[in-house]
Computed example of a mutant assay.
Amino acid sequence: MIIDKLENHKLYSGLSDRIAMAFDYVTQTDLANTPIGTYEIDDDKVFAIVMEYITKDIDEANCEGHHAHIDLQYMISGTEYVGVTTLTNQTPISEDPEKDLDFYDTTSSLVKFDTGTFMIFFPDDLHMPSVHIDAPEKVKKVVVKIKVH
């Protein structure tokens, strides 16, 4: 997992061409005014999902993981906690290979995710987004899905 301010994105663009494409999208798109939806960047290899939602109580959240994609998440507006932990020997409580989405009932450490910050989650990183800090809050963020192979 990587967490940093968007202004430092060039430090990570060299990780792969697809990650560089994802950062190009995030830095060159007016995301504050981009409607909710899915946007193709490089066919099915790199695509963005712009979303808005109300953060929730930690008791309503589970960790999720992906096998075929890296997530680059950027907080457009709002603040939330994201639970983070490493995939070791946890067993999924549900699996959806078609959506590349597994859910886990596991403990995690909470990290504050603020406007202007990005997080990168690799397949060995479990993450629990959308957790409110003091009270439910509306957030807008983009998740760029980056196919691993």
Results as ranks from 00 to 15, higher is better:
74 Y>K: 07
3 I>W: 02
108 S>W: 12
69 H>W: 02
123 P>F: 00
54 I>F: 07
19 I>R: 06
11 L>C: 00
62 N>S: 09
112 K>P: 02
2 I>H: 00
106 T>V: 15
44 D>H: 10
15 L>E: 01
107 T>V: 08
36 I>G: 00
136 P>Y: 08
37 G>C: 08
57 D>Q: 13
144 V>P: 03
83 G>W: 13
34 T>D: 05
96 D>T: 08
10 K>N: 05
149 H>P: 15
89 N>E: 14
121 F>D: 03
59 D>S: 13
46 V>P: 11
33 N>M: 08
27 T>A: 02
18 R>I: 02
126 L>Y: 07
63 C>K: 04
10 K>S: 05
105 D>K: 09
37 G>Y: 03
16 S>N: 04
120 I>R: 04
39 Y>M: 07
81 Y>D: 11
43 D>Y: 02
2 I>K: 00
102 D>N: 11
143 V>N: 09
8 N>M: 03
23 F>T: 06
43 D>S: 11
63 C>P: 02
58 I>A: 11
147 K>M: 12
111 V>A: 14
135 A>M: 10
62 N>K: 11
63 C>W: 00
94 S>D: 14
26 V>A: 01
77 S>Q: 11
149 H>E: 15
12 Y>C: 06
51 M>H: 00
32 A>R: 15
134 D>P: 09
40 E>I: 08
101 L>I: 06
66 H>D: 05
67 H>Q: 13
77 S>K: 14
99 K>N: 15
13 S>N: 02
57 D>P: 11
132 H>I: 06
96 D>G: 07
15 L>I: 06
112 K>M: 12
86 T>R: 12
81 Y>L: 15
116 G>D: 09
48 A>C: 10
107 T>N: 15
22 A>Y: 07
145 K>R: 11
8 N>L: 03
80 E>P: 15
128 M>K: 15
110 L>Q: 12
14 G>R: 10
44 D>N: 13
130 S>K: 13
109 S>I: 15
65 G>L: 02
54 I>H: 08
18 R>A: 14
26 V>Q: 00
99 K>E: 14
100 D>A: 11
77 S>P: 00
15 L>Y: 01
47 F>E: 05
49 I>K: 13
55 T>L: 06
48 A>T: 10
113 F>K: 07
18 R>F: 06
97 P>V: 13
148 V>N: 07
121 F>C: 12
102 D>Q: 11
140 K>F: 04
116 G>S: 08
35 P>N: 11
8 N>Q: 06
95 E>P: 00
131 V>I: 15
37 G>I: 02
50 V>W: 02
144 V>C: 04
9 H>I: 09
117 T>E: 14
29 T>D: 05
23 F>W: 11
19 I>W: 04
106 T>K: 01
86 T>F: 02
32 A>H: 14
50 V>H: 03
14 G>A: 10
24 D>K: 10
101 L>D: 06
148 V>W: 01
81 Y>A: 10
87 L>A: 09
57 D>N: 15
128 M>V: 01
132 H>C: 12
7 E>C: 02
12 Y>R: 05
126 L>E: 09
100 D>N: 13
82 V>E: 10
117 T>Y: 05
89 N>S: 14
129 P>K: 05
122 F>R: 03
9 H>V: 10
74 Y>C: 05
48 A>S: 10
72 L>D: 07
127 H>W: 07
56 K>P: 00
145 K>E: 01
38 T>G: 04
14 G>F: 08
76 I>C: 04
